[in-house]
């Protein structure tokens, strides 16, 4: 198979990727092994995307790809061709996302703040998925985002609030 990509992508060589990051079109050449997480942080300086395990287990690097939440550490930049990636930097203060961020502040839904961008991206997606109906549902579907400071009950409070519910 002689695709354009393969021609571009000899061992360690660059892969052409054209995609959107926070609404900005990017056309780049990257090494095949570069993860979306490292690229966003190191090349674009979007350090709101956090590395907590680099093994897909903590959720700190949660971003949206075509509106769906994923962990950026287990995705190659090369796989993002044609997609739209949204990080916490891309949602600051905007609409419902802003409401989630405000609610996190009001409810003290974080402490050290390291997992927070991932929690917020996950929460934004959660509300969009229609899974913020009950506290139990929020707890289950936010369980992919670890918080070692232990802010979980307050994260639920924030999400209930942002989703327009009554905080218990």
């Amino acid at each position: 198979m002689k695709t354009r990509e393969e021609a571009l992508s000899r061992l360690g060589a660059s892969v052409g990727v054209e995609f959107g990051v926070n609404g900005v079109r990017r056309r780049v050449g990257v090494e095949g092994r570069v993860t979306l997480l490292d690229w966003l942080r190191d090349e674009l300086g979007l350090t709101g995307v956090k590395k907590g395990c680099d093994q897909g287990a903590c959720g700190a690097c949660t971003v949206l790809v075509d509106g769906k939440r994923v962990v950026a550490c287990l995705m190659l930049v090369a796989q993002c061709d044609g997609r739209e990636v949204t990080t916490v930097e891309g949602v600051a203060g905007v609409g419902e996302a802003g409401a989630v961020q405000d609610a996190f502040v009001r409810h003290d839904a974080f402490q050290c703040g390291y997992c927070t961008p991932g929690q917020i991206m996950s929460a934004i997606a959660l509300i969009g998925e229609g899974r913020a109906g009950t506290r139990e549902e929020i707890a289950e579907f936010m369980s992919g985002n670890l918080c070692r400071c232990g802010a979980y009950p307050r994260i639920r409070d924030a999400i209930v609030d942002a989703a327009g519910g009554e905080v218990g």
Partner: peptide
């Protein structure tokens, strides 16, 4: 991760052939 060649497959038959 070590370096590798990345290939974006567009056709199942070809993808199977490569691997």
């Amino acid at each position: 991760m070590g370096p590798f060649t990345y290939v974006r497959a567009v056709d199942p038959v070809e993808a199977v052939g490569v691997v």
